[in-house]
Every structure is written in structure tokens, then in C-alpha cells.
Design a protein around this nucleic acid. Structure first.
Lengths: 324, 324
DNA sequence: CTGAAAGCGCTAACAA
DNA sequence: TTGTTAGCGCTTTCAG
């Protein structure tokens, strides 16, 4: 009756429905899951849900979950390997039907996720792991990074720097390569000293800015940042150091998931289609759950340069470069 | 063996452990839950996890969950009543052991949560619901709001406004009352026109700021805001309108969960102990799960005024008011 | 079309 | 100390 079997006639149907009402019956999904051998539960493993990028990704996943009657359980790893391992183990024992994982990527033991693969457990990666072939969805950040630094150059910057992300993030390496390429492309000299140590948190960017202000090296006149958080921290430190943004130094961030657009000097940034990443990942996972033998699929989503004020382009009438 | 029963001797124990290894056995939590009649799952219902305040609260809940071997499943309601109802229903059917709910509060049917109570289902509220007695933990925002507006007045503001939150939020009403009280206390005239329509999102604050710039009424010289998001949107709109912060208008926000401290003009704000709220709520819920007959408990956590730059106090050497 | 019975993987109570 | 069995609430299969 509950499962809308068409082979029950209206009379009994109504009768049962009334009894259900009367006794305030709530079907037990646990027992159902046990019998059915699936839970309609998905797991999402991210570093930190309070990062707006992951927040938006999770919204996308949630949308698809709602649509297909799945529930979502989120695990934060806080960039900690142990937690990644235990989080995955816990979700596996709880018999989630599949996992979406934003993994730690470099200098790290990845046996736990290799095991997932060996056991044919359905999962989607949100970032590549060296040596592991699996479904993947991520933003095509190379072109975004290229666009961003080229845009900085076109806006008149001659000493453009890159503020690095965390060392375990392959995305930071990719963006660094794209940054170099854009420099070369524009006939500018690459200079190691202009690759700045950063991180992923606002505080990391702030520290980088402080260091910059103290340095004797000529200040960069343009900085492309690993993400918006470090960009915002950097901006604040530079302002504290008496620099004017964008006149003294232009800044562009990455992600455009937070509130950068509402800063006093609105942040120019490369937008990642975060919600869409979440949606695509969830859809791909659902497909993988249905059919474990599908060939692996890699989905790359386009990024978009959102020109605002920190790059100084508006003032100078510069048009953003369209594509690599 | 798995459950660490002390009554099995080391030999068999080791033997079993080896077999477990060999077969790569993973205990099925679903079956376990069915037999045990509990799931060690908690549910958290919030409006929008990408709001940093809820992000931090969820981190607190997560901490306690980890500590006690629980998992957490989060449901976003997006301020939508239907979603609140269905989210709660879904989690109930999945047999979570308990729920932490940040509910819609006013002008809204609350039968679903009254039913929870009637069925003795363990849950904790993160905001009062009129007519429902239940466990509760929230920040003591009256005193925070009082402190904030008093601080504005002490910093020299004479036309201080309140930028309202969403109409369904009782917290906004409380803060409005505290604001009025602070005005009266300081011998200032309360003026309806200085209670501004806002909301909870950055965009709401931005709109309010735009409206303010167009108004013929004398601009307030100080604005106490429902939360940091609206404060940031407001600040941006005011800056766009050519106002100087804090010289023309001073601003103080509420929550201090996001990156307000890193704005070019760092945001003065009333800090809510968000992580602690999450922790306390989870602990209280666990206690409630263990014993359904405990008397209801209401926990109020202290707020703290974090003085930075948007209130203009630092410049004027003003010391924040300590307590109500 | 409806009712009865077996089984999903575990725990708890009991017997050996 | 160990092995056996009933039962958690559902789905599925198979008779009526």
C-alpha cells in the first residue's frame, strides 16, 4: 500500500490509509534499508563546510538528493588525513549508497580510497588523486587562472605575483602553471620571488600581505590569488600597510563563492560554478550507483572571470580576456 | 568480539580478528541499528548551512558527535516551511536518535514540531517557538544588542538606527527591544523611521543602504544591524553612495562568524559563541536522548562586543560598555 | 487481489 | 567461555 503498488483496490487502500493516520504510523527506513540492501543515503566528504565554496557545492548535491529522494550526510575532514580515513569508514559502515569526496591530494597515503575503488564502492572525486582513476568533476581552473593573470597584465600590471594555495592542493599547482604561461605569453619574465606563500584561509592571505609589506623587493603591482579568502586577507594587510587597491596593487581572487562582490573595493574573481559542481557530482554518482560498470567520466566545468574593482580594470577601460 | 565483550579470551579474539581482516568484513550499521533500536545518528535542521553562523554551529555539533560516536545529517530549510516539515519527517523516518532544530518561528504553523514533542521525540531548539516548551540553547542577544547600540551612542552617534532582520525571526524583535531600551537609557528619542527594513542576506543590507541614500530624511549617524551579512551589504551601499564609514555613519553588526574582521574597514560586531552553541545543543540533546523525563532546560550563552573600526570608537577612544 | 512466510545482518537472551 | 535462536520492521515471494 505504502509503495503505491497499483494492484490494490481503492477500498482497501483507503481503509489502510485511515488506519495509518490513526496510529500515526511512520515507516522505519532502517528496516526498509536492511531489506532493500540500500539506504538512499549519500555521503559528502569535504575539508570544511564553512568555506563558502564547499557550502555551495553541498547545496548543489543537496538539490539533486532532494530531487531523487536521497538524504545527505556531510563529513568535514579539516584537512586532516586521519579524519578523512575515519569519516569514509564510518559512512561505509553506515552503508551510504555512494560518496562524493573532496580528497587530500598530495604527499598523503591514499590506500583508503584505493580500497574503495577495489571494492567497487561508488564514489566521485572532486579533485584528482595521483594514481587513482575514478569519476571526477571539477572546474577547469587552468583557463580561469590564465584569464585572471592575463587580465591583470592587460590592466597594466608588470610585476604580477601569484599567491599560492596549500601545498597539498593540486589546483594550486595548476593555477601556478597557468599563471606562468600567461606571463610567458605576454612576454613577461617569470620570477620565483613573485610566487608567494599563502594557504587557503583568510589569515594565510593576511600573513602573506604583512610579509609583502615588510619585504625590500619591489612590491608586485598585481597579485593573482589561489582563492578569495586569501585575497581578502591579503587586501586587508596591504591596506593596513598603507597601499591603495587597485592603484598600488591590483588583486584578483578565485572561487567567487563568498561575499567578495560586496567589499568596499569589490573583489575581482574567477568564478567556479560551485552549485553546478555539486549537482553534476551528485548526478554522476547516482548514475554510477545504478551501474557500476560504466566507464569513468571526467567532467570539467567552465570558470568565468568576474571583473569588479580590485583589478583596477574598470577604471582603465580594460576588457577581460575571453579564453585561453 | 566486535563489541569488545570482556568475556572472550585472547586466543579466539585474535583468531576472529584475523578472519575479519581476511574477509574485509565491515559491520553493517543498518542491521545493528535495527536490532538496537537506535541509530547513533543526529539530525540538524538549519536555514542555510552556507551562512557562516550556522556553519560554525554545525562544527560544534560535529565535534560532540565525533566525540560520542554519532554521525550528523544536516537539512537546509532555506527559510521554507514546507522544507522544514519534510526535512523533519525524513529524518524521523530515518530514525535519527534526535534533532537539533533552528526553526521558523513566527506567523507559521508549528504543528509538526508540536507533534515531535507529543511523541516524546528528543529535540533541541536553537530559537524559541511561541507556545512550545522544549530544550533550548541560544545566545543571550538582548544584552549584546543593548551593548552594541549603547556603544554607538557613546561613540558620539545621535541618530542611531536599527536595521531589522527577517520578520519571522524573534531574535530581531528582541534586538529591537534592546535597541529601544538603550536609546531610552541614554535619553535619546526613539524614532520609528530609524527602524530600517532589512533581512538576513547581504543583498538585503545592500538594498537597505541604497534606500537610505535616496531618502530625504537625515541619514542616521550610527546603525546597529541584525547580522553581519546585512551590515556588510549596507556598508557597501553606503560607500557607493559616497558616505564615509565610520565618519558619516558608524556601523555595528551581529554574529561575528564570518570575515567581518578583515574588511578594509573592519566590522565591529557582537560575537555569538556559535561553535559553543552547537556543542551545548548537542550535549543537551544527548542527555535528553538518554533520559526523556529530564526537566526542560534553557541555556543562554553570553555574547561579546568586538570593537573594530566601523563603529569609529577606536578613533575616538571610546571604551565599550561592559554589560546591561 | 490479499494474506502468510522467509530473510536482510545484527543483538540479546539463553543453553551448552 | 562459546554456540544457538528469536526477533528488530521491512520487502519479496508464493499460496490462497
Amino acid at each position: 500500500v505504502l509503495n503505491e503498488n497499483p494492484a490494490v483496490n481503492k477500498k482497501t487502500r483507503d481503509r489502510i490509509l485511515k488506519i495509518i493516520q490513526e496510529y500515526n504510523y511512520k515507516p522505519n527506513e532502517i528496516a526498509r534499508s536492511l531489506a532493500l540492501k540500500h539506504t538512499r543515503l549519500l555521503g559528502l566528504i569535504v575539508k570544511d563546510i564553512s568555506n563558502p565554496l564547499y557550502g555551495k557545492i553541498s547545496m548543489g548535491v543537496e538539490q539533486i538528493c532532494n530531487q531523487y529522494g536521497y538524504s545527505l550526510i556531510i563529513g568535514n575532514t579539516h584537512k586532516d588525513w586521519e579524519r578523512e580515513v575515519t569519516n569514509i569508514a564510518v559512512l561505509e559502515r553506515r552503508r551510504v549508497d555512494g560518496l562524493i569526496i573532496f580528497p587530500l591530494q598530495k604527499h598523503v597515503n591514499t590506500d583508503h580510497i584505493a580500497a574503495l575503488k577495489k571494492n567497487d564502492f561508488p564514489f566521485i572525486l572532486l579533485a584528482e588523486i595521483p594514481g587513482i582513476k575514478a569519476d571526477l568533476v571539477r572546474a577547469e581552473d587552468e583557463s580561469g587562472a590564465f584569464q585572471a593573470t592575463t587580465h591583470l597584465i592587460r590592466s597594466g600590471c608588470r610585476r604580477v605575483a601569484y599567491l599560492k594555495g596549500p601545498s597539498i592542493a593540486m589546483a594550486s599547482d595548476r593555477r601556478l602553471r597557468a599563471y606562468k604561461k600567461a606571463l610567458t605569453n605576454a612576454g613577461l619574465q617569470y620570477d620565483d620571488d613573485y610566487v608567494l606563500d599563502g594557504g587557503w584561509r583568510i589569515e594565510d592571505g593576511y600573513q602573506a600581505g604583512k610579509a609583502l609589506c615588510k619585504s625590500h623587493k619591489p612590491l608586485p603591482d598585481g597579485i593573482f590569488c589561489y582563492n578569495d579568502s586569501v585575497a581578502i586577507g591579503l587586501l586587508r594587510a596591504l591596506v593596513e600597510g598603507g597601499k591603495r587597491i587597485p592603484e598600488d596593487v591590483a588583486i584578483v581572487g578565485f572561487d567567487d563563492a563568498g561575499m567578495g562582490g560586496y567589499l568596499e573595493t569589490a573583489l575581482t574573481s574567477v568564478r567556479q560554478p560551485a552549485v553546478e559542481i555539486g549537482r553534476k557530482a551528485a548526478e554522476l554518482l547516482l548514475r554510477r550507483i545504478k551501474n557500476k560498470n560504466l566507464p569513468f567520466k571526467k567532467i570539467f566545468l567552465k570558470t568565468e572571470l568576474i571583473v569588479r574593482e580590485t583589478c583596477g580594470a574598470k577604471a582603465k577601460g580594460c576588457v577581460p580576456v575571453q579564453k585561453e
